[in-house]
Nucleic acid binder design. Structure first.
Lengths: 191, 191, 191, 191
DNA sequence: CATGAATGAGACTTCATTCAT
DNA sequence: AATGAATGAAGTCTCATTCAT
């Protein structure tokens, strides 16, 4: 179709065609319920082409996670605003919610899985970011607690993961951002 | 072997042999990673016998959840002790933690899955039980909040599901009961 | 079809149908040039049935060797006649030739492969049998040599394997039995 | 890189890069266990380039044999020394052994295959060379036999191929040259 | 009720080959 | 002459389910 692009661009286009199709199908039906053949048919390429760009079906899962990681690390991490620690924490989890919504709950469902080895790894970046906010808040006396910064981060994340989990259970049936905001506000009363 | 029992008992025994084996395997390896043949071999019955008691492989998942539901409903529900609402809530979640530990995290991992359609249904019974405790607490002024009882219950459950989720992520690597107790205590400072 | 036989016999029949078809195809086309699907189509069974009886495609190779081993061990080993050691040795290799001919050179070609890990194992039984004959011959002075029985056996086997190899190279185009007999006779002049 | 050479030299270089890489891989892993892509990656050329020089993957097998043939014909054939026929025959097979060792047993294993259509062709040159030696030996009375020169050659070659075969079976685990020398000496006692 | 042999669609993956650039 | 993206047929193996015994 596209005649002006050179071969490398074509290859990149093919890769993205496959990746996007796969991602879309994972969202809709879940990783275990789709086949490589299906991906390729929908993407309009040969089965063999899939294996030119991915070593195995599992590879696309890793790719999805890598992209998500990078998105959070480079895009979200440095945008946390607020006048004090509690505001920043609330804003952090608003970002977190937005970030989860981006994935759409269908995909999130696949990811929010206790057996998923990528899950803990994925969270690392975010937790580091939140930790800094908490540390500052404790120093400034904006947060009153007997817990260490690490413990506070964990306490918060556990509850917020519960929020995401609940949102998934309800098939994304309510506004996650608003809910996460309200929930976090309430939670911060503990401190 | 046992010839004196009548057919109904034999059938019951066969059913349980299959069910228990299946349950044990689901715990160990996850529903998607076991085969009907494997269940039957381990149970010492023919493949055909499986289909005498279950319409499909999926049937055993439903059964597992039904049993779990009933266990909670009939055994756990009425044992919540405590001098006031907050104590009762803490004790409720201690029961909840114990109940989850019973499943062992391997099985819980399979169950604690956002794609699991049984998950919401399963929680119903528990939430009703907790709701009563919360309602009494609000009436007696032991709980200060602007939220409705339903909202409080949901707020609490979301966080505690986050706790279970976290425990699963860590492969059951810490004492869930103690952690849930501490976590709930802290959480109740919001009220 | 066969109504009178019981299920176990039927299963045995199915196994043999698959095995014989596979063996026949290996002979005709070589192990690497046939497919499981092909075997099953020719045998008139489903692909799945193949895997009810064999764990993998490789399994049929092992089976072929096991059967060959057993045939030699139980049937051939004790039939070596002759008035003296040299006659017995000649008769031994006549048996050996007959045994190879049984395999038909097409199958033998597949077997007579230096990469075949079964090859050395396969020969063990035969070499033990020949060794006894040689030992007796040396004791009685019917064989004059400075070599040990083991060395003699090896010397003979190496040459005779060369004979089989040559026969395979010529696609079984001459009478192996007669040739092996003549060859062995000549070879024994060394002793 | 090298721009001064003309196209023909470049082409020759590319051809050799592919051929040598292919040969080396065949030695290491066997013809059936390597892929065209693998050859090209190791050779540092595009897959398409392979098909500029070879019509098919099979082509490289033919090439390997042709080269081997030529090597023996032009390099080995005229170097057979010895004071009499028997010495020359022994020396001939020492050359033969050296020649086989050169291939390394890994490659030899691939070649020493009864299904290999090139095998008989390959031997032709060598047999002609040996035949001359035998003919002279018979004329001079250095070899006593009722066999024709052709028969003697065949008799010897069959045994020595058995030697090579055995050496392959033992994964080159002993000194082929010495063994071939001893074996031939013993074998010549028949004449 | 119990058995287990038989089924066959369908999954993932490989790889020799082609051809437009 | 060189490239390498694209192809798609073919391979091995799995497994939920059926049904005659």
């Amino acid at each position: 179709m596209v005649k002006v692009t050179n071969r490398k661009l074509q290859a990149q286009a093919t890769y993205e065609k496959i990746y996007n199709t796969a991602m879309s199908l994972v969202e809709k039906k879940g990783f275990n319920n789709i086949t490589v053949k299906e991906i390729c048919e929908k993407a309009g390429v040969a089965v063999g082409s899939f294996y030119n760009y991915f070593n195995s079906k599992d590879d696309i899962l890793y790719e999805i996670f890598n992209k998500a990681d990078n998105f959070f690390l480079h895009t979200v991490a440095n945008r946390i605003e607020g006048e004090n620690a509690k505001e920043k924490i609330i804003n952090f989890f608003i970002h977190y919610a937005e970030y989860c919504k981006r994935d759409k709950f269908d995909q999130l469902k696949q990811i929010y899985n206790t057996s998923n080895p990528m899950f803990i790894k994925k969270g690392r970046y975010m937790q580091e970011v939140l930790k800094k906010v908490v540390e500052e808040g404790i120093e400034r006396g904006e947060i009153c607690t007997d817990m260490s910064p690490d413990e506070v981060v964990r306490f918060l994340f556990i509850a917020l993961r519960g929020v995401i989990f609940d949102w998934c259970l309800h098939d994304g049936g309510y506004d996650l951002t608003q809910f996460a905001k309200d929930y976090t506000e309430r939670l911060l009363k503990c401190f």
